[in-house]
Design a protein around this nucleic acid. Structure first.
Lengths: 353, 353
DNA sequence: TTATCTTAGAAACTCGATTTTTAAAGCAAA
DNA sequence: TTTGCTTTAAAAATCGAGTTTCTAAGATAA
């Protein structure tokens, strides 16, 4: 359509002047400025972003790498990042890796081609090679809970310990001692970090007590499987409480326990992790460790932009707090008779939303 | 970093030749091609997308406009669109409007500046002015259920009638006659279209019977309010079934009915709309009209790309089917005693996942 | 009146590709 | 050997900005 030349001709000035008016990069007299502005209107002129990026070397695009937008963990995070980017005048290119490393690699390549101003990596399908590639191009990157820090690399470090400690203390206050943990798939760093936070706190409170760790996969189905394993292997002395590596796992576990005739939270208290929107709507509503996705997203963009502004400075490491949200899936421990475990019983009505 | 010139120098050829090798746009002898390829490797060369876009006038970017990614309707749709775009080599810039027209307008401006190849508008905060702006720039657009068709404008038309008819026939088969409807906020075209599909089918089946329409807002809280209104205004003769404009509304209504001592589906059958992932996980699991988001997303990109390929052709109108998914929130109608409505009663255990 | 300093605008160059034009070989036919 | 055609690749123009340098006009001071 119409270019800066058309505007310049229309206003009877040079293209340089138009550029200076648009970017405020040199003084232009009020009269000329007004004339230029009017011509811009008249021509319905929108500056071509590619030409600008090419000339200036800056793209005002942020790359956002996530695993799966359909995983309820991500939408709110994406929303926060998108909002923060919008406010600072950046566009967000979304990359949904589907947990696929090759796809991730393609996206990193595209990001480089588009000369993105920065990349937020909110997933772990990012191997050393890709990270190096970005480092080599000096693209600022912010990792969620993954990364090494570096010249252009920042890291958001979620303080899992804080929330998990609150969770365990909450259970202990309710009288629980036998507390099991259902982990996420242990290949993922975040699963390992969460597990470690759990065991560390437990060992501190109950030194030497053997741990009750079961394997899930961050999905509902994994929670269900783990619950079954708990029922099978611990039948003689069931844990009175279960902490799950994320909310989906907790939801799966709750369901499996209920199917097997247990009442949540009367027989077993359950605590989730993440505080996804859905967790307030389950029955019973889930007591869970809140991960402040909103803050996470905001900080991610903040850190990225500060790296962009001062490319010479070292990346930052930001601590993200977590805290316990108490709802209806936890209750005081109850003296349990062995017979209860086997027999079905009615559920109690409970307020959930 | 390194540009096409470096590669050309390294390979001892002109930049034109490098370009032709990359894009396969002219014959290049095997020997020269091999030399060029090697230089590309050696220089770790990635073509600059901005320069390409500027020179070619094509951006390989799609703009995606949605209302709110945290609304469970959208993630799966976004995922499908992103996947389809990725497969065709397009990047997706996400625009989350937050139902804000001004923000939408900003985004449209940015899309134009970025010379996007096409825009998928999956929301309705898009007024005539913006649509015209896009039309003026000849940017292909695909609307969800909103738009007029035009030279570069396509439309995905969801066949609400189909699914709603199945829903009503399902209820009728279960013996229901008094069927209420909770609408979305009526300012939204999609709310009007859904409502119209409901009333049309009802009038066809039960001509002249007065309609039971209540107002919601597509949110949980609106469903709750509407349920309350139903209880208040229809206490003497409650509907035996309720169709909700979307799943969130249905979930809110279920909860409010339950709080008031009704059992779902024993006392009232409820049907949602959209089949969001969550709807399979509620208790009772929601019978709902499925909107095939995956197909929707895929078709959106398809239509857009075909408009991009043949800019001279008229836009398309694609019908998107809907169908009923039967779960646990609907049951045969039951002869009801007035006393039941007022007294609390225990819930029955039900399989939900 | 002349010299100096401001100010604003024009012109030229740059970014890194694509695309069009031009030219150099290579080969066949006359 | 020359002409003409084909094949191949180089050279140059172009896209639409930003940016730097240069120049002209006007203001100010000596």
């Amino acid at each position: 359509m119409s270019s800066i030349k058309d505007v310049a001709r229309e206003a009877g000035v040079s293209t340089a002047t138009v550029s200076h008016v648009i970017n405020n990069t040199r003084f232009v007299s009020d009269e000329v400025r007004a004339r230029v502005m009017q011509s811009i209107q008249q021509c319905r002129y929108y500056p071509n972003a590619h030409a600008r990026s090419l000339a200036s070397g800056k793209s005002r695009i942020l790359g956002l790498v996530i695993s799966d937008i359909a995983n309820p963990f991500f939408p709110e995070l994406v929303k926060a990042i998108e909002a923060a980017a919008y406010n600072r005048g950046f566009d967000v290119v979304l990359s949904n890796t589907n947990y696929d490393t090759e796809r991730t690699s393609h996206y990193v390549q595209r990001f480089i081609e588009r000369n993105v101003a920065g990349v937020a990596v909110m997933t772990s399908e990012m191997d050393k090679r890709l990270t190096d590639e970005l480092a080599h191009r000096e693209v600022p990157v912010v990792f969620l809970d993954v990364g090494e820090k570096g010249l252009h690399m920042s890291n958001l470090k979620v303080d899992y310990e804080e929330g998990i400690e609150q969770a365990i203390l909450h259970l202990v206050a309710l009288g629980h001692r036998r507390i099991a943990y259902i982990s996420g798939n242990i290949e993922l760093r975040s699963a390992r970090r969460r597990l470690k936070a759990f065991t560390a706190t437990m060992q501190q409170l109950f030194p030497g007590v053997p741990e009750l760790i079961f394997n899930g996969n961050f999905k509902i189905e994994g929670g269900r499987r783990a619950a079954n394993e708990i029922l099978a292997t611990q039948a003689d002395d069931l844990p009175t409480a279960v902490v799950a590596a994320n909310d989906l796992t907790a939801i799966g576990a709750i369901h499996e326990f209920e199917v097997n005739g247990l009442d949540i939270p009367r027989d077993i208290s359950i605590i989730g992790f993440d505080n996804i929107a859905f967790s307030a709507l389950t029955k019973p509503a889930l007591t869970t460790v809140n991960l402040p996705l909103n803050e996470l997203g905001r900080r991610a963009v903040e850190v990225l932009l500060s790296s962009i502004d001062k490319p010479s400075e070292e990346g930052q490491e930001i601590r993200i707090p977590t805290n316990l949200i108490i709802r209806q899936s936890t209750a005081p421990v109850r003296i349990k008779k062995v017979s209860d475990v086997k027999s079905k019983r009615r559920k109690t009505v409970r307020q959930t939303m």
